[in-house]
Amino acid sequence: MELTNYLYLSVVLFALGATTVLLRRNTIVVFMGIELMLNATNLALVTFARMHGDVTGQVLAFFVMVVAAAEVVVGLAIIVTIFRARRSASVDDVNLLKS
């Protein structure tokens, strides 16, 4: 199969992730959107690595996975804290700071 197809797929996934972040209201879903963006990037990296025939891209993908894991820890902690204080997981309810 043509390798560029994987690139198209990764771009589509990335755009889907970004759209999710911008449009969805549930914090957890927004957060999933960010994860989708990171994983779409991984797909692009691995495809590029295959195209160029070197492993830098694959190594980078591993780093991204580690970072994504750390981000989940911090992100979910913050989201859960907010949920416990407000009983709501909607992005719209987090609006005390609006001047």
Binding site: L38, A40, F48, L60, G75, I78, T81, I82, L97
Partner: peptide
Amino acid sequence: QEAAFKYFLLGSFASALMLFGIALVYG
């Protein structure tokens, strides 16, 4: 907490965009 939440969501969104940029440079 709200500040942290906003910073986190927007910050990780921005770093995901930047990461894709890095992937494109590599490509």
